[in-house]
Amino acid sequence: MAILFRSTKALEGQIDDYLDAVSQGMIVFVEGIKDYLAGDQARFGERIKNIGVLESRADNLRRDIENSLYSQSLIPEHRGDVLGLLESMDDVIDTAKETLQQFSVENPYIPEGLNGDFLELARVATQAAETVVAATRAFFRDLNAVKDHLHKTYFFEKEADKTGDRLKRKVFQMEALDLAQKIHLRYFALHIDNIADEAEAVADRLAIYSIKRTI
């Protein structure tokens, strides 16, 4: 029995590490956007490397956790939910990594007047993701606190939508940009906003799983 308790403790640690990786990924994402907007390509390249490492670490941890849950037949009642939760959480960090990658590949031209809007969008979208990470931690340890975090996720997701909308309107009103550039910028606004949408998808799952978890 002691061995089982030890492996449970190790698995608890892995789940925490996984959520840490996603959360750190969000911080790196915002810093990456900041560096890109500042034109610091060297540091931006560093951020892309960092987020890549965090994303693959999260992937490995997720696989290990899922494997342990099924091979040791732990939490049989909830393992399907936990699996779904971790996989949809993976989409959050994946989207963040992909977006930074696209900045690197496509090198979009961002007029200086839009720097503040892009940064704000990145901050709000990642805040949605960070609150859903906190809600997921609460799902494992303190079920009553899940709601306290989820409402923030929904709030930030809506804020991200509004900020994205404002940014796109601003872009399309800029006469100095040609249509190709406008569409290009809209595409990047959409990508950043996607992080908040993925966070909302996790939040929707969590809301249901929390009801299922109450005894």
């Binding site: 089982l4 939490i75 909830h78 936990v82 494992f140 340890r141 079920l143 978890r213």
Partner: peptide, 14 residues
């Protein structure tokens, strides 16, 4: 008890 004591889901399971 379970609503007040913050025990990890895996530990509750064990």
């Amino acid at each position: 008890y379970l609503n007040r004591v913050k025990v990890h889901l895996l530990r509750v399971d064990m």
